[in-house]
Nucleic acid binder design. Structure first.
Lengths: 351, 351
DNA sequence: CCGTTCTGCGCAATCGGTTGCAATCGGAGG
DNA sequence: CCTCCGATTGCAACCGATTGCGCAGAACGG
């Protein structure tokens, strides 16, 4: 028994497998791909040899020849926030199940970083790219990556061509408008009238959510104007100012851009002695897990984050296989009423 | 002007760049790599040509020849939980800055999935692999991936060779013991005696944390035995049973495996009418952002998650460049006292 | 017994860069 | 004027798989 087991043994090549199975490299290749032209016996012999040698194909070589990498690119703003984590998780899982690897980069809402990400994807030749709410314009995106291999996961944004209603190929959206409408309706039903919207500074302030709050109020014939607050860029920063500003002239309810902001605001308001929901009702958006165990538990519009990731991956993979991008979808959202908003009045004699 | 701008234009190759710069492919290649043997003039001409043509090198071809992919693999249990999200985020950022792409897969604490992940990494020829608290044994890990290209991010676990104290090459750990000790000390200082530990079912129950709680109690001369509870596998599941079990014979304080569990327990206990910290103190572990805005805000042992990810990436990259794995580190943790534990007694005349 | 058709397999080109080695050129040295 | 040398650049092999095409041998029909 010679030195053998601990020398940095050379990587096993297809050639080695072929040799062990007494066939040529081409036959080995075809056998492993289950090519019907290879006799069943040979196929099994090759597979056996491959298994015995722990053969691992070299993706670079394969990709070079086949012009496919079985790799997907995922660009999102931030891996730390619960929603994107959820999306990334589902995306990766779906991709993995379909035999794809995923290369992820967090763009941090920065133009240069996002462009770099796209370049990285291009170099590595990802078969497709999914982008979650980029700061790059959809136009630039489509310029930089093959539009037929591009999926946009685009919650709440106006700059998308033909939004809502008709599904746009390759675009995954959520029905934010319905969600916000339901939230505002709920607030109105519990007797709130003076409702304000709190925008997150990380967002363009022309969000559909803000607009929908205003629209719903108008439709329901509320005359008090909707006030709008906007939180500083980083939701984890000291919220003092904003909370104080709000507390100075407290609305009856606050609709927040998302749960993170809502939770953060609840904390800041508590600091100021403002009680939720007694003094002010709060509703969030996203339905992150922590919203369910905050104190008080947060009323929110739950978004199917996992579903978004899953659908994004599977749409992309279809696009890769079929060459054409499947229609996008607008995923439904759901309001979940918890403790941060007042409960419905026990059927007081209205009218 | 012929059809030209909207036909699916062929991808630009190095050859094209070379042609435009009137040099050979080899020269172009060297020029782009800033090879000093190429005259400065030629180098710039080539770079200019490359820029004008928007040349993007083909990573597959390069990797095939160079046997490097400038890609790192990251295997972690779950992209959804805040701690791992943080680690992944920092890891990706550091890698990107050093010119590496990262391929991530969530192993979901499943043997088969983790093995698959390692295979994916092997096929894609990642230059290095970082693994965050795997369910695979370190031994198996080192068998399946080149140990010189492997970094283990291993919070709280016993199965690691030579843990604590002396840094193990390629192993990033946190000083859990100190953290837990500080937490228990704090609890004792606030007058708690009957202290229980709550283990998370997702963990092997032989965690260092559990052991340290017991040890600290013993060292401080506490005679009441430490009780241990263990939470069901998925921390987001209905906590009813566990909370009820705990409430039935309430300890004075609860040390929880992590913040998620702590937060979740606080919610469940609140449901039962148990007040924190008046009826029971609670301390978590990790220092996730939400721990800072829960109600009551959670006392916790903060772990430098970002630092872990960053260090993991940079260690790995060093290993790739130098061929040898740098020493690992044991990162410090820090207790942050908030509202979920009683405050220190105002210097009562002890002893 | 010979020509045809399959069946099963192997040869060699190919994917797009990188790199060892040789070639070329101008100028210095003899 | 010839040789030598260093500075530049080009030729061609190579990385490891996939695949079009052709070939051998078996099976089959007449």
């Amino acid at each position: 028994m010679a030195v053998n087991s601990d020398r940095p043994r050379r990587r096993i090549l297809l050639k080695d497998v072929a040799q062990r199975a007494n066939v040529s490299g081409s036959t080995a290749s075809r056998a492993l791909a289950d090519d019907q032209r290879i006799s069943i016996g040979t196929r099994e012999a090759v597979k056996l040899a491959a298994a015995e040698l722990h053969y691992v194909p070299n993706a670079a070589a394969r990709s070079l020849r086949v012009r496919r990498t079985r790799t997907l690119g995922l660009l999102l703003p931030d891996l730390r926030d619960p929603v994107h984590g959820q999306v990334a998780s589902a995306f990766e899982q779906e991709a993995r199940q379909q035999g794809y690897g995923v290369m992820v980069v967090a763009g941090e809402r920065d133009l240069a970083r996002e462009r770099l990400a796209l370049r990285i994807f291009a170099e590595h030749g990802t078969d497709g790219v999914a982008i979650v709410s980029s700061v790059l314009s959809p136009k630039e995106l489509r310029e930089r990556v093959d539009p037929d291999r591009l999926v946009l996961v685009w919650p709440d944004h106006r700059s998308l061509p033909r939004r809502n209603g008709a599904p746009v190929p390759g675009v995954i959206q959520t029905d934010d408008a319905s969600g916000v409408r339901a939230a505002v309706d709920h607030l109105l039903d519990t007797g709130c009238r003076r409702i304000a919207y709190v925008e997150s500074g990380v967002r363009a302030s022309n969000s559909i959510r803000a607009a929908t709050v205003a629209a719903t109020l108008r439709d329901r014939g509320i005359r008090e104007p909707m006030r709008t607050f906007v939180a500083s860029l980083d939701a984890w920063r000291a919220p003092g100012d904003l909370a104080a500003e709000i507390a100075a002239d407290l609305p009856e309810a606050l609709v927040c851009y998302d749960d993170q902001l809502a939770l953060w605001l609840m904390d800041a308001l508590r600091n100021l002695g403002v009680r939720v929901p007694d003094d002010v009702g709060i509703v969030g958006f996203d339905g992150i897990p922590f919203a369910g165990i905050s104190n008080p538990r947060l009323t929110t519009v739950a978004v199917p984050s996992s579903e978004m990731g899953r659908v994004a991956a599977s749409t992309l993979i279809h696009a890769v296989h079929d060459g054409a991008l499947p229609d996008g979808v607008v995923l439904p959202v759901e309001i979940v009423v918890r403790e941060s908003t007042r409960s419905l009045p026990a059927s007081s004699g209205q009218g």
